[in-house]
Amino acid sequence: MRRFTVQEANELLPELKRDLHRLQTLLDEYEEQKVELQRRKNTLASYTPESGGMDPFFEVEGRLDFMRLEVQLMVDNFERKGVLLKMVQPGLIDFPAIVDGEDALICWKEGEERASHYHGWHDGFRGRKPLPED
């Protein structure tokens, strides 16, 4: 498992912020499409595949399947970079690290300019503490 220094975490942060924004945008679009599909299904409740004709939902359901795969690839990309994506909305990213000689997670929350806090592996976000000064 990769371990990050504070400097490495903050150097990677601009790229992760862009990735996170793309993921958030895709998830918003996915939710909109899903709601629209459900609305259409409710409107055309009488349609059954046995009634003949083309499935009016095939295209949208296919697009949603593709979007779901794209979301999973984007989430997996965070893992490939060695970070832990804890939440998408709002964004919460942990960087495995060693802080004061102990295994820890450097923590960044969307809206923060840089990673400046950490917590233990089992402490979670509520256990956040400011990073020690060098």
Results as ranks from 00 to 15, higher is better:
L92G: 00
E133V: 14
E50H: 03
D55C: 06
G52T: 04
M67G: 01
A104S: 09
Q72N: 07
L73G: 13
P14V: 13
D134Y: 10
I93T: 05
V6S: 07
E15A: 10
R40Q: 13
P56R: 02
S46F: 13
G127A: 10
R40Y: 12
S51C: 11
M67V: 06
L20M: 11
K17W: 09
E15W: 01
F78Y: 06
K86D: 08
E50M: 07
W108D: 04
K129F: 01
I98L: 08
R68I: 11
Y30F: 12
G111C: 06
Y30V: 04
H117D: 15
P132F: 00
C107T: 14
P56M: 05
T48N: 00
I106M: 08
E70M: 07
I93N: 05
L69D: 15
T43H: 06
D28W: 01
V99M: 01
A97K: 05
K41V: 14
L12G: 00
R63Q: 15
D55G: 05
R68K: 15
G62H: 10
R2H: 10
V99I: 15
P96A: 09
E36C: 06
V75Y: 02
V71K: 08
L26S: 01
K81Y: 02
F66K: 14
H21W: 11
M1I: 12
L23E: 00
H122W: 13
R2V: 04
E8V: 05
E8M: 05
E59A: 13
D19Y: 07
D103S: 10
P130Q: 10
F58H: 12
Q24A: 04
L27V: 12
L105K: 04
N10G: 04
P49V: 06
L27Y: 07
E50L: 10
T25D: 08
Y118A: 05
L44Q: 08
V99D: 03
F95L: 03
D19S: 14
L73E: 15
E79P: 05
M1S: 11
R126F: 01
L13W: 00
G91P: 02
C107S: 15
C107F: 04
H122S: 14
D76N: 15
T43M: 07
G52L: 00
Y47L: 01
R40W: 09
R3Q: 10
D55R: 05
M87I: 04
D65N: 14
L37Q: 03
D103M: 09
P130M: 05
E133L: 15
